[in-house]
Design a protein around this nucleic acid. Sequence first.
DNA 1: GTTTATTTGTACGTATGTATA
DNA 2: GTATACATACGTACAAATAAA
Lengths: 261, 261
Amino acid sequence: MKDSSKGDAEPAPAEPRHVTLATALREAISRGDFSPGERLPPERDLAERFDASRTTVRLALSALKSQGLIGSGQGQGTYVRKARPIRVMAMDQDRRARRAANNAATFNAEIAGGIGRQRITSVDCVFATEETARWLAVPEGTELLARRRVMLVDEEPYQLGDSYYIHELVRETAIAREESVEEDVLAVLEQANGRPIAYFVDELSFRMPTPDEATTLRLDPGVCVVRVLRIAYDGDDRPIEAFDQLMAGDKHVLVYKVPAE
Amino acid sequence: MKDSSKGDAEPAPAEPRHVTLATALREAISRGDFSPGERLPPERDLAERFDASRTTVRLALSALKSQGLIGSGQGQGTYVRKARPIRVMAMDQDRRARRAANNAATFNAEIAGGIGRQRITSVDCVFATEETARWLAVPEGTELLARRRVMLVDEEPYQLGDSYYIHELVRETAIAREESVEEDVLAVLEQANGRPIAYFVDELSFRMPTPDEATTLRLDPGVCVVRVLRIAYDGDDRPIEAFDQLMAGDKHVLVYKVPAE
DNA sequence: GTTTATTTGTACGTATGTATA
DNA sequence: GTATACATACGTACAAATAAA
């Protein structure tokens, strides 16, 4: 008794059982046999139906999980995941205009749909590491101000963001105070610096989250993260803010408008 | 198997065995106990050393794999992964200047380091789907030209890219011919359109690859992909090219320069 | 509100296949 | 060709969380 469910007439398996199973399930999902949110049959049922052990079924399911297709939980079964990401306009003509409207730091004003909010985790005075020193073009060990925060949309964590400033520059401003800065952070920064921000450079990299990050961002397994390092420069090409962001991959669509010239 | 049969004086395990193990290994790796490329001890050794079954060790290892930290192969053991991504300047002042130098399509000219090359997979005349029609702002069913290609760096697949053009527009040009377009593709397009490209809009999303994509891009497990949909517009805000790209997450760092105003 | 059944999670052991060194 | 080490696959048992009764 090789297979039972479908009348496939292949004599050469050549393929591991759990791969066949994973493919079958993946196709069933993308075919719509199971709609988003819907529950799959229990592992034991699948095992019986595909004439495999539960261990093998779990192997197949774990593959789908690591692809972010399904989720599961004790007592609640295995279900098809649904994700509706928000669009983040990383660059927008009237960005500056909207910036003032919210209490917005960089991306914050640009979240479309949903109620954006940020919670300050900590405001610390730290010494520049090799990395942060490079970002802000200062010697290692320079005193920096680090503002760490969590960005929430509808009370769900969407992004982690750490901003670094040269302490000397912002010591006297609202940025250095713990309280959530109600005014436009970048405007405060520009005033302190004496020169307006001329441009940002975004550097995006992509990977799987560490367990810590997965917990904080409440990521399902199989969801990757995007790290956006945004450095703000003034007209003299001097960096005045480094913004180290970590965004949940399944909850974001980033949009950049790039002039041809 | 009730108790652990070893005189452990830990009163609060509270954490699954494989999680502890995974954490220990992860820390060992990030601490540098195992350098990139180096082999970890065999599963059986780890099982013995941590007083766990091989199954449990494999569970822990599979977690690290799905985080992209390690790789493995039959007969070659388990090793720490190394990845050095290329930097892609998505936006660069003299982009256009460098564009002409290579036989460049959009990103192609902007790969820094390594020898970039592209292989045309197919050039097809297709009918616009709901998606492609939306991208190019044409009615569904409109005849489009689809150019599919693989971008290679040092003969390693880095990106998959499908370009879509309104067939009517490019019918008479080199773009419609199978052969690799030696000239600047965008220049040909601009000439055919009669108006230059004014700007691009990039839309980035992030997910785990399908098995197909993983195979084609030769992705290790635990590596995510970035989808960059780049649409080129002319001065009248009319889309004239849609470029649907899929990039290996571990092999790319994307850089965008964003003017403040 | 408590109990109970369901279902996944954890963990063990064993055996054999197979690619690599 | 052989040994190594991962890959595949079976079976079993109990824990823990959830949802339904």
